[in-house]
């Protein structure tokens, strides 16, 4: 598999604080890589390193096969577009002027592509409005437009949907999917909003305490996720007794709800319960979400033990 970015035992420490510790990750070409972790787990630090804003104190990484120690890495970074933390834009300039400035920085002589870029991010009608008067969503979209100026192959987005309204979240999601599908741009996206990330990502990397705990593709996650039947019953004790007698793997969620993980027909479950006088109020098929996978992976054991009988 061809990788856009690989990190090998990467480390970064600030005086007495170890932000990244022996981190290894692999971002396949063409992927939307969801980078998941708690606050302070090292997501932004890693992004700063690969964008050249900071230097690693241990280990190495390669961008398109070029090691970070090579001089050529600077040229290779020209293939990256990034929005790190907050969008980087001149607040006293209009959207168009910001893009023109970025074109000059990149040495692109013609501004022909600017109207298309503004249209792509939905900012074509901002006219003479200065960026300081933009909403958060507009700034975020302008930040992405700036990142797209050099037609990058690899887009790095750090928390791009933080603070956006639902409409803004949908727009950014559609934009990322469009860029990935139509322009084959590889995307590294860090986010806390796991539900949103699960709609986008083709691969995931879970980071904790500056270390990648697990890398998994969305397909593998789907396979690994346990499917179950979620039941709402009138008497949870009777349910537990019947489930034990049927040798089912189950988990009690509350006084009325339980998950059954063993594959069983609805009739095979409802009939014995009815015979014992336990009424089944509702039955739903339930998939394990990215969120529950994340909780299980990164300190979710306590959470599970609380609710499992």
């Amino acid at each position: 598999m061809e990788y856009v970015l690989t990190a090998n035992a990467l480390g970064k420490s600030y005086r007495h604080f170890q932000a990244l510790n022996n981190l290894s990750m692999h971002i396949p070409k063409g992927a939307i890589y969801g980078f998941v972790g708690k606050n302070g787990s090292g997501k932004t630090t890693l992004i700063r390193l690969i964008c050249g804003l900071q230097k690693p104190t241990a280990g190495s990484y390669t961008l398109y096969g070029i090691p970070n120690t090579e001089k050529e890495i600077q040229k290779t970074r020209g293939r990256i577009g990034a929005v790190v933390e907050t969008p980087s834009l001149y607040l006293n300039m209009t959207a168009e002027d910001n893009l023109k400035e970025q074109y000059r920085i990149l040495g692109i002589p013609s501004f022909q592509g600017i109207p298309g870029l503004l249209k792509l991010v939905g900012l074509e009608n901002t006219g003479k409005k200065k960026a300081r008067h933009f909403s958060l969503g507009m700034r975020q979209r302008l930040g992405i437009a700036i990142a797209l100026c050099g037609s990058p192959d690899f887009l790095v987005l750090d928390e791009p949907i933080n603070g956006l309204d639902p409409q803004g979240i949908i727009e950014i999601r559609e934009l990322i999917l469009k860029l990935n599908k139509e322009r084959q741009i590889t995307v590294l996206i860090s986010s806390h909003i796991l539900d949103e990330l699960s709609r986008l990502a083709t691969h995931y990397g879970f980071i904790d305490h500056g270390h990648i705990v697990k890398e998994i593709s969305a397909a593998e996650l789907e396979n690994a996720s346990r499917k179950c039947i979620r039941l709402e019953v009138s008497d949870i004790k009777t349910f537990a007794r019947v489930a034990e007698s049927l040798k089912l793997e189950y988990s009690v969620l509350s006084a009325t709800h339980a998950d059954v993980f063993t594959k069983i027909t609805a009739t095979g479950l409802i009939v014995p319960l009815a015979q014992e006088g336990c009424e089944v109020i509702s039955v739903q098929e339930h998939d394990e979400s990215l969120e529950s996978y994340y909780v299980k992976l990164l300190g979710g054991n306590q959470y599970e033990q609380t609710f499992t009988c």
């Binding site: 600077q74 990256i80 577009g81 790190v84 969008p87 980087s88 834009l89 970025q102 050099g150």
Partner: peptide, 18 residues
């Protein structure tokens, strides 16, 4: 100072300028 306050210093570094 604006390069830092507006974050645009990052744009220059990310695009590979020394």
């Amino acid at each position: 100072g604006t390069e830092y306050s507006d974050g645009t210093m990052r744009n220059k570094l990310i695009t590979g300028h020394s």
